[in-house]
């Protein structure tokens, strides 16, 4: 059974990949069907995982003497309310949309505001946490690029030498980011190929 799973996974992966490179009608139609199937499977997996979260994790917590019991009960009630109203009203119903977004948007916006404080606090504590040359350079970079991007040096645009120097400094993080992204792209490629040829199998149970 395990062997059949592996063969199916590898064959599906190879067909989808070949469809990306070879624009032959036969391969394209199989590729489209496989991708559609994949999307449906991901949707079902999402539903199963949500049900597991609600009834496997939070239901269990609500029945036990867990410190977060009240939050688990709140989550279950909110889930059931959303599910029932979604089924009866339909997900595209304006009332239902309003109900969901009027809860989710304010909550996530306030979290975003809170995040800004968390990140500023982290940045302030950089030197305390990294007492080495890397930490020093990281902290110095934060200060330099905060000043550069704040616009206080806008007056230098009239001085050709300083303008060139500032333009150079603006390019430095872009070059660094490209270097990192190049490494990540190569790593992603190799990881994908490893899954494709079956040496990495996160699906073998």
């Amino acid at each position: 059974m395990k062997f059949i799973n592996i063969v199916i996974a590898i064959l599906s992966g190879v067909i989808v990949l070949l469809g990306y490179f070879l624009h032959l009608p036969g391969i394209q139609s199989i590729r489209t069907s496989l991708r559609d199937g994949g999307v449906i499977l991901c949707g079902v997996a999402g539903l199963v995982a949500i049900l597991n979260l609600v009834f496997g994790v939070h239901w269990k917590r609500a029945r036990q003497d867990h410190p977060g019991k009240s939050y688990s009960i709140l989550l279950i009630v909110a889930f059931l309310l959303t599910l029932v109203s979604g089924i009866f009203l339909g997900p595209s119903n304006p009332g239902f949309q309003k109900l969901v977004t009027h809860v989710q948007v304010p909550v996530e916006s306030s979290l975003m505001a809170l995040l800004a404080f968390t990140l500023v606090f982290s940045a302030l504590k950089v030197l305390q946490r990294h007492r080495n040359w890397e930490g020093g350079i990281f902290f110095l970079s934060i200060i330099v690029f905060l000043v550069l991007n704040s616009g206080v040096l806008a007056f230098t645009s009239d001085i050709p030498v300083l303008r060139g120097l500032l333009s150079f400094f603006h390019q430095v993080p872009v070059a660094g980011a490209r270097g990192i992204l190049l490494g990540i792209a190569l790593g992603s490629l190799v990881t994908g190929v490893r899954v494709l040829i079956g040496t990495d199998r996160p699906y073998n149970g």
Binding site: S122, R129, F138, I180, I184, G187, S188, T191
Partner: peptide, 25 residues
């Protein structure tokens, strides 16, 4: 993480952070 933003957040927060392709190693 493969995200540059997350890498910088983790580094600033004082965690042991793998940069760039070190993640894949």
């Amino acid at each position: 993480s493969d995200s540059i933003v997350a890498q910088s957040v983790f580094l600033a927060s004082g965690q042991d952070t793998l940069i760039g392709e070190e993640l894949f190693a």
